[in-house]
Design a protein around this nucleic acid. Structure first.
Lengths: 236, 236
DNA sequence: GCCTCGCATACTGTAGACAACAAACGAATT
DNA sequence: AATTCGTTTGTTGTCTACAGTATGCGAGGC
């Protein structure tokens, strides 16, 4: 039963989740994976139909998702997938840079061999997927990498906050651009190296630069998209 | 209607909140104010009776509070007010120090005169209440001070995160000790002065020291309480 | 006295019903 | 043509009911 001699595997009752939790997981996953787009309308009855449950578990899931900022609920008017206004992107980048940076510092301080081993394994998987051109799996591996890194920081609250922040900004940091993807994984490698070296300042600096670099690249993409839209409007 | 020529006052429909939101506000407030203690059992039917509503709005409120970490819900076993395990207190202090520090830096950078005016007013009220020995209102004024300070940082996401963190740690930073209270308000004054001076580094440093100082004082209180309990056990 | 079992009670999770509210649409009026 | 009004449709918010689950308690057996 026990995997690592310390943490028992989940017991049956813990595995058998309530419907509202299952619905929560599904909707959250759909948002993070981009299946549900920012701003998209979430109709309780339709979701209930889709998942084969009554509306109550859906409502409960939406309350939790709303509290986490993933869903915007307007009383009596319905729910939408949360949309980060372009002016607010900078805030998200800034907060994530601050927290990831601090987490990398902590990881370099603790240097937990078991956790770092698994970070290394995920990095290797990410680099392999990159080389093989398996772009589709990179988003998942990116999330795995950052999640494992958050564990390496050994501060549960920080890890929780980072998780929530990653969920809210998942689409922001999921570039389609292969060049940016390659750079991301290079940066992942650099952060991990600094952590393995126990160099707190370097780890913090690289983590911050990574988030800011990825975030700024995304902002640039948005601005280019705006410029192209403006050009198209002039032609029409 | 408009208060500051920019933000319209709430319209009727926005004021008339749904029951589940009202219940959420009530329970949240009871937790933050200490009327509901950490670890305390939250029974849906009883809360529903107390608030004069059916169980669903209570369940929905509990989902939101659970997502924010203020309430712990065990599937099929019920809900409790969240209890920060003593070993986790250090994490809370650390995260709050990091965020409050960064916020003070931003506030010193922006130096928004309107917001800082209101921070000053709250500081004056806090100091007056302290001099008059009105300890009961200091908790509320402390929350007001930190909330206004979060606004001065001009980063909505950071403000939101700070709000959530303050709610989770409200009882930690609500000392009964008049000496510690006086010191807290001295430190508030020092932070605000650095902000008014536009000194980012000093503001950040003072905010961090304030949180760590208040937090460590609380930890010391816990350790003393533990020591006294042990002594009582020996006498019995 | 301790342990086990069965029953009663309390509580949670979900479904379904109904009322209230919001949005859309078509007809009537200006 | 634009605006207003009334009706219809779609959706949300809350209540009630019922089944499932967890806990507590007392009786019986060892």
């Amino acid at each position: 039963m026990a995997k690592d001699g310390k943490t028992p595997a989940k017991r049956l009752g813990e595995q058998h989740n309530s419907l509202h939790n299952l619905v929560y997981d599904e909707i959250r996953s759909a948002i993070v994976n981009g299946r549900l787009k920012p701003g998209e309308r979430l109709i309780e009855e339709r979701l209930a139909e889709e998942y084969g449950v009554s509306r109550n578990p859906v409502r409960e899931a939406l309350r939790a998702l709303s509290a986490e900022g993933l869903v915007d609920v307007s009383s009596r008017r319905g729910a939408h997938v949360a949309h980060v206004a372009p002016e607010k992107l900078q805030e998200v980048i800034e907060m994530r840079a601050l927290l990831e940076s601090h987490n990398a510092r902590l990881a370099a301080r603790h240097k937990n061999p078991v956790v770092l081993k698994s970070v290394e394994a995920i990095l290797a998987k990410g680099q392999a997927a990159l080389s093989a051109g398996r772009m589709r799996s990179l988003r998942d591996l990116n999330e795995q990498f950052h999640k494992a890194l958050a564990q390496a920081g050994n501060n549960e609250l920080l890890s929780e906050m980072l998780g929530a922040l990653r969920a809210r900004s998942a689409l922001l940091f999921a570039p389609d651009n292969p060049k940016r993807q390659a750079l991301n994984w290079d940066e992942h490698a650099g952060i991990l190296q600094a952590i393995l070296d126990g160099d707190e300042d370097m780890a913090a600096k690289r983590a911050m630069a990574h988030v800011i670099g990825a975030g700024e690249a995304h902002l640039k993409t948005l601005r280019q998209a705006d410029t192209q839209t403006a050009s198209s409007d002039q032609l029409a």
